[in-house]
């Protein structure tokens, strides 16, 4: 057997990215990049033509994701990606609309839109990169920062109870709810595929290292150490009670529970539902161009 040199001139995912925008703005060790790649792969495998995928974001490090993807992409204002995306999905129901944004954007400034879009069961996917802090502005405390964790605006440690995001999403009406990490890319991609196949409001939380904003002040050495934490500390348990999914990275032996927790059916938001024949409205297949695929 002889040694051969393999030079990859092209990556299969190249056409999915705007190569002329590189290098990206993310720090070394950031978890957003791998999660973005999982989304790109899921789009290819979804069988939905790329021209029918739309990505919408708010503001922050994760808000930059759509700008690097070679697709119809909208980088909107802080917190407002969901209503913007909802309107696109209503005007063009044949499009597969995904909101890709961060924990602060979606759950602090944008929290109201999240719960109402979930309640309505708007036909969009929401992917939230949760890195436990405001990364772009330099490591401030946020609605997902674990209690006790230090941040530039919580110098003595965070004293606020953080959100348990899967629990919140399920309680407010999401029809698909999952949590993975930027280490569990295969499972993450599968969850994204499921979300794309599903009609209605889907939610995927992606735990991701932010070694600069969150790791450094919290004695997590670097991204490798946070990834190790995910590898050693995560358990996959889709049947776990939703109220048990709180995260505390500082407690070494407390597991982080991952999985696809919710996968249910509920009528999808359709402002014209009351105008349609009863049978059509009940089946809720009236939205043009989209059908429920594989369960």
């Amino acid at each position: 057997m002889t040694m051969s040199t393999l030079i990859a001139e092209r990556h299969p995912s190249d056409p999915l990215f705007r190569a002329d925008r590189l290098p990206h703005i993310w720090c070394p060790g950031c978890g957003i990049g791998p999660a973005m790649h999982a989304y790109a792969q899921a789009m290819v495998e979804s069988g939905i033509p790329l021209a029918r995928h739309v990505c919408v974001s708010g503001i922050g490090c994760t808000g930059r994701v759509p700008g690097y993807l070679n697709m119809d992409s909208y980088h909107t204002t802080h917190g407002r990606a969901i209503p913007f995306a909802m309107a696109i999905a209503l005007v063009k129901p044949e499009l597969e609309v995904t909101v890709y944004s961060g924990d602060g954007d979606l759950f602090a400034i944008g929290g109201n839109h999240f719960i109402h879009a979930a309640r309505r069961n708007v036909d969009i996917n929401v992917i939230c990169i949760n890195n436990f802090n405001y990364g772009m502005t330099g490591g401030q405390v946020g609605p997902t920062t674990p209690m006790g964790a230090r941040a530039t605006t919580a110098p003595f440690g965070n004293y606020e109870q953080p959100f348990n995001l899967p629990h919140l999403a399920a309680a407010t009406g999401a029809v698909f709810v999952a949590r993975w990490t930027s280490l569990h890319l295969r499972q993450l991609k599968q969850a994204m595929l499921r979300a794309m196949k599903k009609r209605g409001f889907t939610f995927i939380e992606v735990l991701a290292p932010c070694p600069v904003g969150f790791g450094r002040p919290n004695d997590i050495g670097d991204a490798m150490e946070e990834m190790t934490l995910y590898r050693e500390g995560c358990v996959v348990d889709p049947a776990a009670p939703l109220d048990s999914l709180d995260i505390d990275l500082r407690v070494k032996d407390r597991p982080i529970v991952l999985g696809n927790f919710v996968d249910v059916e509920r009528p999808v938001f359709d402002p014209l539902a009351m105008m349609r024949p009863t049978s059509e409205a009940e089946n809720n297949t009236a939205v043009a161009g989209k059908t429920q695929e594989g369960q």
């Binding site: 309107a87 696109i88 005007v91």
Partner: peptide, 30 residues
């Protein structure tokens, strides 16, 4: 709805304004 248009009572005016910009980028007069 009588003319096939979309009416949504949003959760607040922040969402209302964001929604009409979103509807417009998808091609609707909003």
């Amino acid at each position: 709805p009588e003319v096939g248009g979309i009416f949504v009572q949003m959760e607040d005016e922040l969402a209302s304004m964001a929604a009409i910009v979103g509807a417009s980028v998808a091609g609707a007069r909003a």
